[in-house]
Amino acid sequence: MMLFLMALGMLFTTLVLLGVAGFLVFAERRVLGFLQNRLGPNRLGPLGVGQALADALKLMSKENFVPDFADPVLYRAAPVLVAFSALASFAVVPLDHHFSWAGNWNIGLLFILAMSSLNAYGVFLGGWASGNKFSLLGAVRAVAQLVSYELPMGLALLGVVLLSGSLSLNGIVAAQNLPYIVLQPLGFVIFLIAGVAETHRLPFDLPEAESELVAGFNTEYGGMRFGYFFLGEYLGLTLIAVLTALLYLGGWHGPWLPGWIWLLIKTAALIFVFFWLRATLPRPRYDQLMALGWKVLLPLALFNVLATALAAALWRLA
């Protein structure tokens, strides 16, 4: 009985997450519209909310198609992998004290890092299996980008871990009497930039790069398989926003309102920041992206770790 209820709950969570991702697709289009002096989709339903449903229905009703030249197994597996890894990460994300599926897992942060690496495999395999040169280029870019930005990201996180002394997300949030954005401003910036790059969103959407690679790794994808990639991307976006809120903005801490509402507000604000970035910044060149990762972020992240460690040691001594 317990197992059944749990399974039901998991299903519900998954559906809610998918719904959130779908809604984000719509939200992004509208927010972009507003930022660009446009209106965005406003035809279907109140404020155009129905657009998300319409898009989903359209994608689901499309032909289930595998190109002749694609590797059929990997081609089918890749989108699932992307969506799965994003969804699975949420298992360790707490909404409030001890409120997550995986409970207060003491290596939650590591799990999330692992899952985000898996996400990269999904993208890479999808691009490779498509058997298309644009897709392959997109896949190669995705791998290189993920490898380059996972490192600064992990190093930035080290600062947080050093300060809180915990790898569990609950622990980290609990340790934040003061939001870590104050103690770790550099770490926050690095994590945010790396997070955007991890989810390969604008301005770091080089794996997709519509203007150069048609649609990059998902050029050959259509219908619901493309939908999985899409969902994966927006789930990733949500994940990074939630993580940033948890790690740097004090999670559910906040006056007057219940904790989970505070987390929701912080996450939404961060998601808006991502949309805002997309509306403003142009896509850098590929070599500029690499240069930023290796020559700027990595040294800065190392410096941040050293500085934090030094400061922590001095703090202990003091």
Partner: peptide, 21 residues
Amino acid sequence: ELGAGLWTTLRQLGRTSTVSY
């Protein structure tokens, strides 16, 4: 400059040139 760009976009919020004909 990055900040100026972001500010420019943010300022557009709530304005629109579209006429809902």
